[in-house]
Amino acid sequence: MNVLLVDDSASVRAILQVYLMGLHPTFLEAEDGERALRVLRLSPVDLVIVDVQMSPMDGITFVRELRQSERPQLRSVPVVMLTSDRSEAVRVQGLEAGANAFVCKPVDARTLLQTIQDVMPRGSP
């Protein structure tokens, strides 16, 4: 399983890798939405975990771009958004953009793993 971690914090990306080690994924990383889109042009992924607040391209804009991709596999890849903003408005914006689920920061390993299980297609790890 290929997992793209998109967060402007290298420490958050490292923590996510520790939490997901049991799934034995291959990790791809990007510091923002623009870089993540470039990574996706080169490598197929099975799951994207993306922070909401990044610059220059935030997570919601990234998801919107992803869902408008010409490549069908990108339009349907599961996306879990991470946010420390607990407002309903951010959640609604993310879901309208095409996110599958949200996990609040600080990230809890069990919650993240359960969320991934919930959004992955049946038969996936």
Rank of each mutant, 00 (worst) to 15 (best):
104 C>H: 08
51 D>M: 04
107 V>N: 09
90 V>C: 12
121 P>E: 01
117 Q>C: 00
112 L>C: 01
62 F>N: 04
106 P>H: 01
65 E>F: 15
25 P>R: 09
26 T>K: 12
50 V>D: 03
54 M>H: 11
12 V>S: 11
105 K>C: 05
94 G>R: 12
73 Q>H: 13
81 M>V: 10
79 V>K: 01
109 A>E: 14
104 C>I: 03
102 F>D: 01
53 Q>T: 03
95 L>D: 00
39 V>G: 08
70 E>P: 09
30 A>E: 11
87 S>A: 06
86 R>G: 10
64 R>M: 04
114 Q>N: 09
97 A>L: 00
21 M>Y: 10
71 R>G: 00
58 D>A: 08
20 L>Y: 03
77 V>A: 02
122 R>H: 09
122 R>D: 08
21 M>T: 13
40 L>Y: 05
122 R>C: 03
29 E>P: 05
76 S>Q: 11
121 P>Y: 04
47 L>V: 09
81 M>S: 03
78 P>I: 00
18 V>G: 14
27 F>N: 09
109 A>R: 13
46 D>P: 06
70 E>A: 15
72 P>I: 06
108 D>V: 09
74 L>N: 10
49 I>M: 07
58 D>I: 01
65 E>S: 14
29 E>H: 09
68 Q>N: 14
107 V>W: 11
96 E>R: 15
100 N>A: 10
62 F>Q: 12
98 G>N: 02
30 A>T: 11
62 F>S: 06
48 V>W: 03
15 I>C: 04
89 A>V: 11
55 S>W: 06
111 T>I: 10
17 Q>G: 13
115 T>G: 00
51 D>P: 05
60 I>Y: 05
50 V>K: 02
26 T>C: 10
13 R>V: 07
23 L>V: 07
104 C>G: 08
48 V>P: 04
112 L>G: 02
44 P>Q: 13
15 I>N: 07
52 V>G: 14
56 P>D: 02
70 E>Q: 13
58 D>V: 02
120 M>G: 01
81 M>Q: 03
100 N>M: 01
93 Q>C: 13
96 E>S: 07
119 V>I: 00
92 V>T: 11
24 H>R: 15
89 A>D: 13
107 V>A: 08
50 V>L: 12
40 L>N: 08
61 T>E: 15
45 V>G: 13
70 E>M: 14
17 Q>H: 02
11 S>F: 14
115 T>L: 00
43 S>M: 13
21 M>W: 11
58 D>F: 07
87 S>D: 10
94 G>L: 11
46 D>F: 09
26 T>E: 15
56 P>W: 01
33 G>K: 12
76 S>C: 07
27 F>V: 09
61 T>L: 14
35 R>Y: 10
44 P>Y: 07
17 Q>V: 01
40 L>P: 04
91 R>A: 10
79 V>G: 06
11 S>G: 04
88 E>Y: 12
27 F>H: 11
58 D>Q: 03
27 F>A: 11
89 A>F: 03
30 A>G: 08
71 R>S: 12
53 Q>P: 00
83 T>I: 04
45 V>I: 14
105 K>L: 04
42 L>T: 05
121 P>S: 08
41 R>F: 00
13 R>Y: 05
105 K>E: 02
93 Q>M: 13
29 E>D: 12
73 Q>G: 01
